[in-house]
Nucleic acid binder design. Structure first.
Length: 696
DNA sequence: ATAGGGTTAG
């Protein structure tokens, strides 16, 4: 039998026999100290603060350095109070300890404590100043940061870099540039900060110009620089340069760096080379949240929303915790699929992970609910948010506008201005859309007036389109034309198309001729314009002009986009085209339609045949109106969902007029709410009425 | 391995 070795064979010999006066004592103590230090470091590394504290209390008279390590550990785990208690009880403090405590305060969100410590500390060094500048900048206190920078007694390159980044992070790229040009000895970090700063402020092309300068200077690049530049390539869609840099990173061995690799996944995804993204992601050694989110976003950008959600589930299954950004992307893909059920599941998951209070998650949920036709839940969510930003307000205003809640959209606008949230272009587009969908002429004029006099917002073409739409829908066709003539910018085809749409509503052939000619000049392949023009002629009984339009279409090789409608149930999309019999439940669907036909007749509903006879739409000619895609999808919804529940159907084109009337009656017959999202807006059918008030 | 500057997704 063998004796087990003693656990601490040299225990007695090492620790105690030397007196402190012995020349070896100092060295021994240092060794003992480094022993404590190594053990403490291991615990701090694994963020086990309770265990670290237990160890720390056993250390006889810990050094300033050990105290400081503990403070940093508490700060990393967000335990600012404990950090401060420890700092407060320190027998002596050096500048590093003060600096660590300042950083701890700033990192944990207590700026005033950070500022107080900074003002009180006996000796500040360049690191103290730089830490404060960085902290103040993160809270948006850029003026305070600037003041410190110009007051500090000496500045090294790190200090200049901190101020450059502070300007960039607060949107002041011009000031960053001025400072960069004054920096005595800029290094690769200064350049990287400038490149990243320009890119993040929407100036990716300038970022790339800076990179060319850096490149030609022959400076050795770091992985951070590559990560920044590759992101700028992604945002500027510079696939060529990006690919070249990719090969450089392979040669320098940087391509396996986690930041660089994520930037590459992002680059190829944004440049619509999703296969390359997938390949690069699969080659990664470690898959973290960020790279996985980049891939999920990439699928979404490439219209592969099912794959995006699959990838999201794979990520969860592999034990990686999604964060707010992951949810933003996944929820966006739910919008792409109009998958309300999937979106609700994600909502539940955000609650489980404690992320539902995050403002980005909240915004994404508001958009998801309203884009999936459930604006009521979108509103509920918006009301429950405890923090809101401009995007939150825009999301709910646009959501209301698209769903026909114009008055509510305008009320929300008043609310946001009440609490001094400055609207932007998107806010105004939402409001104008709301007015146009509800034919609110005077409110629309008022909003446009506010927009024109809002110095912090630029009037964009889309605003003019909305205004033409409002004027046109309300029957002021001549005024709309006059409005277009007086626009300070060149009108585009969308403007004329809006006018043409109005001509159809108000059967105005003269204006329609002029408007359609403009559209055909600018966009000869726009099939919607031909269909509109043909319908305008048809409604006036001008059959020669109708057939002439059709000939012109055929001659120019223009084919109409086929109409299709779909419904998403249990995350499966069921899509129908007119007269479709390919669905496994086709028999039941047509039986339901026949039954509905009988019921509709009993209620005296007469089908409006003009939509069948005069439309250029081939699908409408081929099959009876009763078998339009939207009706098929609704019939399928009726037989596949619980009695009384809301049915949500989407259509790629505008809903046909006959279907619109029929669906109103159907909602009454079956006692259900039917939400139909067509190419331009949502229709909420209920008790025989539609939320659009029949003007769409 | 006591303290400061640039890096990836949204």
């Amino acid at each position: 039998m063998r004796r087990l070795p003693a656990l601490f064979p040299n225990h007695k010999a090492t620790v105690f026999p030397l007196k402190t006066s012995h020349p070896l004592a100092a060295r021994r103590c240092k060794e003992v100290g480094s022993h404590w230090k190594a053990a403490l470091f291991r615990l701090l590394e694994s963020c086990d603060m309770d265990e670290a504290r237990r160890l720390f209390t056993r250390i006889p008279s810990p050094s300033v350095q050990l105290y400081t390590m503990m403070i940093v550990g508490y700060s990393r785990t967000n335990r600012i109070d404990e950090a401060f208690r420890l700092f407060d009880g320190m027998p002596v403090r050096d500048t590093a300890a003060w600096n660590s405590m300042i950083k701890a305060a700033l990192d944990c969100g207590d700026v005033s404590l950070g500022r107080k410590l900074f003002d009180e500390m006996p000796e500040r060094n360049v690191i103290s100043w730089t830490t404060m500048i960085n902290g103040l900048s993160r809270f948006g206190w850029i003026d305070a940061a600037e003041e410190l920078f110009f007051r500090m007694p000496q500045r090294d390159t790190a200090a200049w870099n901190a101020m450059i980044s502070a300007y960039c992070d607060n949107g002041r790229v011009k000031d960053a540039r001025l400072l960069f040009e004054k920096t005595p000895q800029p290094n690769v970090i200064s350049w990287t900060a400038m490149i990243g700063g320009h890119d993040q402020n929407g100036e990716s092309d300038k970022a790339l110009l800076l990179f060319h300068k850096l490149w030609s200077s022959g400076t050795k690049l770091t992985p951070s620089t590559y990560a920044c530049v590759l992101t700028a390539c992604a945002n500027a869609s510079e696939l060529g340069l990006g690919t070249q840099l990719h090969s450089h990173t392979v040669r320098t061995g940087y391509s396996s760096d986690t930041f660089v690799s994520t930037s590459l996944v992002n680059l190829y995804a944004k440049c619509k080379q999703i296969e390359d993204s997938i390949q690069l992601f699969s080659e990664r050694k470690e898959r973290d949240v960020v790279s996985w989110t980049a891939l999920i976003t990439g699928y979404g950008l490439n219209d592969k929303h099912e794959d995006a959600l699959d990838e999201f589930n794979k990520m969860i299954a592999s034990g990686i915790r999604p964060n707010q950004s992951t949810f933003t992307s996944a929820l966006n893909s739910c919008c792409g699929l109009e998958a309300l059920d999937g979106g609700k599941k994600l909502h539940a998951t955000t609650v489980k992970l404690g992320l539902e209070l995050d403002v980005f998650v909240g915004n994404s949920l508001v958009v998801m609910y309203s884009k999936c036709g459930d604006v009521e839940d979108g509103l509920m969510l918006f009301d429950s948010m405890d923090r809101r930003n401009l995007v939150s307000w825009n999301s709910i205003i646009v959501g209301c506008a698209q769903n026909g809640y114009a008055t509510l959209a305008l009320k929300l606008f008043d609310d946001m201005r009440q609490i001094n949230v400055q609207p932007d272009e998107i806010t105004y587009t939402g409001l104008l859309t709301a007015c146009s969908h509800s034919r609110m002429l005077e409110r629309g004029r008022h909003i446009f007036h506010l927009l024109k006099h809002d110095s912090s917002v630029q009037v964009k073409l889309e605003h003019y389109v909305c205004m033409v739409d409002i004027l046109g829908r309300c029957g002021n066709l001549e005024e709309a034309e006059e409005f277009i003539r007086n626009m300070p910018v060149e009108p585009n085809s969308k403007i004329w198309l809006a006018l043409l749409g109005a001509c159809r509503m108000h059967a105005n052939i003269e204006v329609a001729r002029r408007a359609s000619k403009k559209v055909f000049d600018m966009e000869p392949d726009n099939s919607a314009a031909y269909v509109l023009l043909s319908n305008i002629y048809a409604s006036a009984g001008r059959w020669n002009d109708v057939s002439q339009t059709r000939v012109m279409m055929r001659y120019r090789g223009i084919t109409k986009v086929p109409g299709s409608s779909w419904i998403t149930l249990k995350e499966t999309r069921h899509e129908f085209v007119c007269g479709d019999r390919s669905h496994p439940m086709a028999m039941e669907i047509y039986k339901k339609l026949d039954w509905l036909g009988v019921k509709l007749k009993e209620l005296g509903y007469v089908c409006d045949k003009t939509f069948a006879l005069h439309d250029v739409d081939d699908e409408q000619k081929e099959a009876a109106l009763a078998h339009h895609s939207e009706k098929l999808a609704i019939a399928f919804g009726l037989i596949s969902t619980v009695e009384g529940s809301t049915i949500r159907v989407m259509k790629n084109l505008r809903v046909c007029g006959d279907c619109h009337s029929a669906i109103k009656v159907i909602s009454q017959v079956v006692g259900r709410r039917i939400v139909l999202r067509d190419a331009t807006r949502f229709h909420h059918f209920r008790d025989g009425l539609c939320s659009c008030g029949d003007c769409w």
